[in-house]
Design a protein around this nucleic acid. Structure first.
Lengths: 219, 219
DNA sequence: TAAAATATTTAGATTTACCTAAATTTTATT
DNA sequence: AATAAAATTTAGGTAAATCTAAATATTTTA
């Protein structure tokens, strides 16, 4: 099955939005891909034709097992390239997502597997997300609590769910990265913002929105 | 200047064909890009619009200095990725060209420069071709004699000018790679084929066409 | 140098991946 | 349940990069 770059991006987004949901709506997909609902409908017909999705008018979209397999391959490539960029080329985590968006479209199993080997077959990427293996098997995204929901007050950063460069750069300058340990100083109920502190650094406050995208585990 | 992948491929091919030639013909470019002359004419108009080439109807094509700069960037990326694939991921030289054709289109100066650094700023790629530096300066492709033209009979392989996987794989199985030393046993005038021998291996004969694409220096 | 051969361009289509505007269907609300 | 609101699809178009067939230039050759 030979996919175009546009098709790969659709498949990847559907996979992402399908998580937990029963089906992916035209609108949600259009928003995710920064395109129009009408374009999504067009592409849905094409992907259905190729048997990568199940789709009936007005009924939303689901990946077929075929489609899921394709998605996992793309995700595998994406996350391996992110590892490469961070570990070998010293990029910081907020820079790699966009580059990996391009590199992921180089479809060569041999390249992917060699890259994985070169990196020591890593299990998670620089954002804390699991990397599917060559067969498409992926460790469950470890049950992660967001800082927003977490009850505990001594925490370690396990992942960041929002990969926008702006947020990641903000976290970077504040010293928040994968593995960072932090203390919750105060939770403000009126706006759900949280004051946190990292060892040897001044405390600072983050909004509810930011707290929601920082995944943590108690320590 | 933001180029599409198609535009980049045209620029790269024009650069290649321009070497030595006064101007690049529509037909030659169509053949090189495996497309039709009519398509080349269309694209020529677009590239002229973007000031990357000089082009007048029926007069052939030349890169502007703008266009040359773009070409050298693409070639730099291509050759660096080839180095990466061979040196870090243990690909053999006949496999890397096609992969590099895709990787070269990831346009990030930062990535390119980091990659170069990671590889130790190599000066030549696995086929023996020089790699332009970040400023687009490229060591002259060392004056290379083809095995076909060479007068000497003890030679070292410096490069291979034809990157088709088929030829490179043939050379591979025969034990011919960059740096290989070989002896010319006999030159057959009737068809310009050449019998050569690599140390510890049986002698074999190559056609004129193959001899033309093996670049050598006397030792 | 005129005709033939070759090279190049133009004209008009096609495919992919989009778009806008209008029509239709589904869902929510009174 | 009828209507309003929201979501989705259809219809018709656009831009990029191709193509084929026909027209036009240029070059070669007899």
């Amino acid at each position: 099955m030979n996919l175009t770059i546009a098709e790969e991006n659709y498949i990847k987004s559907i996979y992402k939005l399908e998580e937990g949901q029963e089906a992916v709506s035209t609108n949600a997909l259009a928003y995710e891909l920064d395109t129009k609902p009408a374009s999504v409908t067009d592409m849905a017909k094409k992907l259905k034709e190729k048997k990568l999705i199940a789709y009936e008018k007005y009924q939303g979209i689901n990946l077929t097992s075929e489609g899921k397999k394709a998605a996992l391959q793309i995700i595998r490539r994406h996350r391996l390239w992110e590892c490469f960029l961070v570990e070998k080329l010293s990029f910081s985590w907020e820079e790699v997502h966009e580059l990996a968006e391009e590199l992921e479209h180089v479809r060569s199993e041999k390249l992917t597997n060699r890259l994985s080997e070169f990196l020591g077959n890593p299990q998670i990427d620089p954002h804390g997300d699991p990397i599917p293996d060559a067969q498409g098997k992926m460790g469950k995204p470890r049950v992660q609590t967001s800082l927003h929901k977490s009850k505990a007050n001594r925490l370690e950063v396990m992942a960041v769910s929002d990969k926008s460069a702006a947020l990641l750069e903000f976290l970077n300058t504040k010293g928040v990265r994968l593995g960072t340990q932090l203390d919750v100083i105060e939770r403000y109920e009126f706006d759900n913002s949280i004051e946190i502190k990292i060892k040897n650094q001044p405390a600072f406050t983050i909004s509810e929105q930011v707290a929601k995208s920082i995944m943590v585990k108690p320590i």
